Amino acid sequence: MTSAFRYSKKEHNDSLLSLGSIRIGTLYDFRRSEHRRGISDGKEGRKTVFHHIDQASTADGDTIHMRALKEFNAFSYGPNTVVEMKNVHLARDFNHPDMYVHCTSIDYSSKVMREFEGADSCVEITNVIGFYKRLTESLKKITQVDFMGVTKVTYMDRNQPWTGDGWGINPALIKEHEFKNQVELRAIWWSKTMKPINPITLHDIGLLKFCVSRLTP
């Protein structure tokens, strides 16, 4: 992974290119409806995992249905107890704790830029690893964080069937299919303060060496 692309209003990208000004958002802040189209997502960090049992019995042995009852903490039963079940629906809701988040795209195209309301300029981050290493150093001067990495977002339904092996993809790295044209790359930081967090705008001219202006695609 070498490059990523930031689509934004020209005034914001100009501030990045001249002053190293950058806003690091939060997972929960993205839920706000006040954000422009392409950024606001009221379901950020949430998902539901479900499992349906048409018919089963505790006498069936170690089946996926029996494992589901245990993993979903549905109910417990003692040894030599037989319980018959029909039409049972299990569900577990996940609401990921708030985190610092910065988003870019791995795709340089007009299709991506159209996804972000008001975006009229593009900055290429030419060295993603170097950029986020430097950004992490700057962020740590402001607050206590651990960098959790940068990864591609997975586009999928937030209602997921249980596979029988864990709880699936981290809900902080999921977006619904309607956002798939963004081809998002997401960097995340875990706050170590154990207090509510808010977006941070910082200024670091050391970021400039990783950024170049690109013509709008």
Score class of each variant (00 low, 15 high):
133 K>C: 04
133 K>L: 11
133 K>H: 08
133 K>S: 12
133 K>R: 05
135 L>Q: 08
136 T>S: 01
136 T>V: 00
136 T>W: 00
137 E>Y: 05
137 E>C: 11
138 S>I: 14
138 S>A: 14
138 S>K: 15
138 S>L: 14
139 L>M: 03
139 L>P: 00
139 L>V: 02
139 L>S: 03
140 K>P: 01
140 K>F: 00
140 K>R: 03
141 K>S: 12
141 K>V: 10
143 T>S: 11
143 T>R: 12
144 Q>S: 10
144 Q>H: 11
144 Q>T: 08
145 V>I: 08
145 V>C: 05
145 V>D: 01
145 V>W: 03
145 V>A: 02
146 D>C: 08
146 D>P: 06
148 M>S: 06
149 G>S: 12
149 G>V: 02
150 V>F: 14
150 V>N: 06
150 V>M: 07
150 V>P: 07
152 K>P: 06
152 K>G: 07
153 V>D: 02
153 V>H: 04
154 T>I: 13
154 T>Y: 13
155 Y>N: 14
155 Y>L: 14
155 Y>H: 13
156 M>F: 15
156 M>V: 15
156 M>E: 15
157 D>F: 15
157 D>P: 12
158 R>D: 07
158 R>I: 11
159 N>K: 14
160 Q>L: 10
160 Q>S: 11
160 Q>R: 11
161 P>C: 15
161 P>E: 15
162 W>I: 14
162 W>M: 14
163 T>I: 07
163 T>H: 04
164 G>S: 09
165 D>A: 11
165 D>G: 06
167 W>D: 05
167 W>R: 04
168 G>R: 01
168 G>D: 03
169 I>F: 02
169 I>Y: 00
170 N>I: 02
170 N>F: 03
170 N>M: 03
171 P>K: 04
171 P>M: 04
172 A>N: 01
173 L>V: 10
173 L>E: 06
173 L>P: 13
176 E>F: 11
177 H>E: 15
179 F>G: 08
179 F>R: 09
179 F>V: 07
180 K>F: 13
180 K>V: 13
181 N>K: 10
182 Q>A: 08
183 V>F: 14
183 V>I: 14
184 E>T: 08
184 E>V: 07
185 L>S: 08
185 L>K: 10
186 R>W: 11
186 R>Y: 12
187 A>F: 00
187 A>T: 00
188 I>W: 00
188 I>F: 02
188 I>R: 00
188 I>N: 01
188 I>D: 00
189 W>K: 06
189 W>G: 05
189 W>R: 04
189 W>D: 02
189 W>V: 03
189 W>H: 09
190 W>Y: 15
191 S>Q: 02
191 S>E: 02
192 K>V: 00
192 K>A: 01
192 K>Y: 02
192 K>S: 01
194 M>C: 12
194 M>P: 10
194 M>F: 13
195 K>N: 07
195 K>S: 06
195 K>W: 05
195 K>M: 07
196 P>W: 02
196 P>N: 02
196 P>F: 04
196 P>A: 04
198 N>Q: 14
198 N>F: 11
200 I>F: 09
201 T>S: 05
201 T>N: 05
201 T>W: 04
201 T>D: 06
201 T>V: 07
202 L>T: 07
203 H>K: 12
203 H>P: 02
203 H>C: 08
203 H>S: 09
204 D>G: 07
205 I>Y: 05
206 G>Y: 09
207 L>I: 04
207 L>W: 03
